[in-house]
């Protein structure tokens, strides 16, 4: 209900790293001046492979409402195969944005009026040297390009901090490559 809160919903599969991605964005957003940052994963039993979602709310003010997002400003989809199982645009605000990891060009996807940004994050990750299937660092590049909410360099720093001991440079590179290869469709 508060107008100052930007609500971002992350769709992924259990084990895919949607929580980590949202956490990285939360960290970078906080550093960039959003004092209110609340990231809440799906409450309950998370099972590997099953669809999960994570809520991220950011605001310049402290956030008190911890309830899950129902009317997101934007949704981030880590795996296009989710589109068949989950209504990812459920509750999406009228001028909402969908950021999608998918192999096809943006014009191939339609979400009832929502703006669409697409990147083949899976390929970008492989191009960066990551094992196939690692998409949670790359999608952050797409997020940055599509939303402009948080500068890419802050996000890259946050990625390196989060992936300490787990190929931080390659994950950062995946985000950078994805950033360059994110295409925003026309409405």
């Amino acid at each position: 209900m508060r107008k100052d809160i930007i609500e971002i919903r992350w769709h992924g599969r259990g084990g895919q790293g949607a929580i980590t991605a949202a956490k990285i964005v939360a960290n970078a957003a906080f550093v960039s001046g959003y004092k209110g940052v609340v990231m809440a994963p799906t409450f309950g039993t998370e099972r590997r492979g099953a669809p999960v979602f994570t809520s991220l709310k950011i605001s310049k003010q402290k956030i008190y409402d911890l309830s899950p997002i129902t009317t997101p400003d934007m949704v981030v989809v880590l795996d296009h195969s989710l589109l068949e199982e989950v209504n990812v645009v459920d509750g999406l605000k009228d001028d909402g944005l969908v950021i999608l990891n998918g192999p096809k060009p943006a014009s191939e996807y339609s979400f009832a009026g929502a703006r669409v940004a697409v990147a083949d994050v899976t390929s970008c990750g492989v191009q960066a040297g990551l094992p196939p299937g690692i998409v949670n660092s790359g999608i952050i590049g797409a997020f940055s390009k599509a939303t402009g909410l948080v500068e890419l360099d802050l996000l890259v720093t946050a990625i390196k901090d989060e992936f300490v001991g787990k190929k931080p440079e390659l994950n950062a590179k995946a985000a950078e490559i994805t950033y360059e290869n994110t295409f925003i469709g026309d409405i």
Binding site: A22, A26, F30, V37, V38, M39, A40, P41, F43, G44
Partner: peptide, 12 residues
């Protein structure tokens, strides 16, 4: 503290 709402939620 509230389970999930606080236990699993990330904030600064």
């Amino acid at each position: 503290y509230d389970g999930y709402l606080l236990s699993h939620t990330y904030m600064p």
